[in-house]
Structure formats: structure tokens, C-alpha cells
Amino acid sequence: MLSVSRLNAFYGRAHILHDVSLEAASGEVLVLLGRNGAGKSTTMKSIIGIVRPGAGSSVTFAGAEMAGRPPHEIARAGLGYVPEERRIFTDLTVMENLEVGRQAPREGLAPWTPERLFAIFPNLGRMRDRPGGRMSGGEQQMLTIARTLMGNPRLILLDEPSEGLAPVIVEEMANAIRQLKQEGLAVVLSEQNLHFAARVADRAVIIEKGTVRWQGTLATLEDEPEVKAQYLSV
């Protein structure tokens, strides 16, 4: 469904991503693992087009080339993006935040409505008219995912969804991601927390210094302590 090959990205003259290649199949949960600053967020931003991929990069999604297209076209093609910083519209209410994310229904997918989303994120349903700025971090995290789902994506990019959340909320988040998978969505998430990743993901890609170092199933990763030690332990 999503195929990234030889993705390069730059901030000014700093070369951040070096020939990153990865694949995500439909219905699969793929996790990008790596330490802070490894290039996970930049990979996501380059896929969605907020960071412009360098020449020669290719990002194909559902058979079409996305590299070089503006973010709104990529989002409309069915690629949802949930940023690490959440970027809730703080002046807008929960319902208004959802409205900003709304797009036309996508063929073959049951369209998301606020009511269906509130079934997954029950907290949000109890604060429909609350401004985003007056919500807790965990509530904002749920809202930012729900907002992206309103665009009826086929694949959703989740940048560090468990970061800074209380353990109870992390549990809710893991459930939500499993539910999305059941709905038939492909999920690509980035994580520093291997335990969280192990509970939701099928496959992992380990990134360090902007380069893919390892990939395989999470079950295989369990058997490779030296890989874990080298790239993931703090």
C-alpha cells in the first residue's frame, strides 16, 4: 500500500535522511523504532510532504507517486498524518477540530463520523464543545487521532502516540490502534518505547542517524538482543 524508496531529506544543507526505504501493506501495523533524533519524525513529514523529499526519492501510495506533491493532495489520497506535537487547534472545540479533518467518504471504507469516533474515544464524546486548549495531553492525543480519521484515510501515520502519556492512557491508545487495524486501516507509527510497540505492531523498522539499520517482525526482534542493545537501549 505504501512504498517508500530511497527517501532523502534535508533541513537547509543538513542531510537528515539517507536512502530510507520501507513498505507497509494494507491492514498492517508497522513501527519505526529509534532513539530521539534518529529521523523517525522526518521520515513521516517527508511522506506527508511537509518536508519536501530530495531528488530521486520515491513515495508511492495506492499505486500513485506522492513525492513532491503538496501535503493536502497527499492527505486527500488517503494518507492520514498525526503529528508528534499533536497540533490541536486550541481555539476550536472538539467538534470543530473534527470538522477541519473531515473529507469525503472513501470507497470501500465505512465513513468515520463523530459518533463512531466517540465509540473508540469515549472521553471525547463527553466534551464535544470544549476548546482544544482546555483539554489534557491525553485527551488532545485522542482528538488529534480522531481528527485525522475524519479524513477517512487508508493508512495513518502516528508520530510517537504514546509519548508523555499516563500509563492508563497508553493502554487506551494501544486498544485504539488495535481497533483501527481491525477496521482494515494500515498504521505506521514511530516509537521509542519498545514495550508499547511490541503490543501493537506486526513489523518493525529500526532507524538510526537517518538510515534504516534493521527490519523484521517484532517476534524476530525479541531474539536479537544485540540489535536492541545497539540501536534502542538508552
Binding site: I48, I50, P70, P71, H72, A75, R76, Y81, P83, R87, F89, T90, D91, L92, E96, N97, E99, V100, G101, Q103, R147, T148, G151
Partner: peptide, 17 residues
């Protein structure tokens, strides 16, 4: 609503399609 959202963060509005 889009105008108010864009007043705060237009890049995010674009990323939402």
C-alpha cells in the same frame, strides 16, 4: 472553521487535506 484553524496552524490544516 477552516479559516479559524488556519489562523492558528495552516501547515496542519494542509496536512489534513
Amino acid at each position: 472553521i477552516l479559516v479559524r484553524a488556519a489562523t492558528q496552524d495552516r501547515e496542519m490544516v494542509a496536512a489534513l487535506g
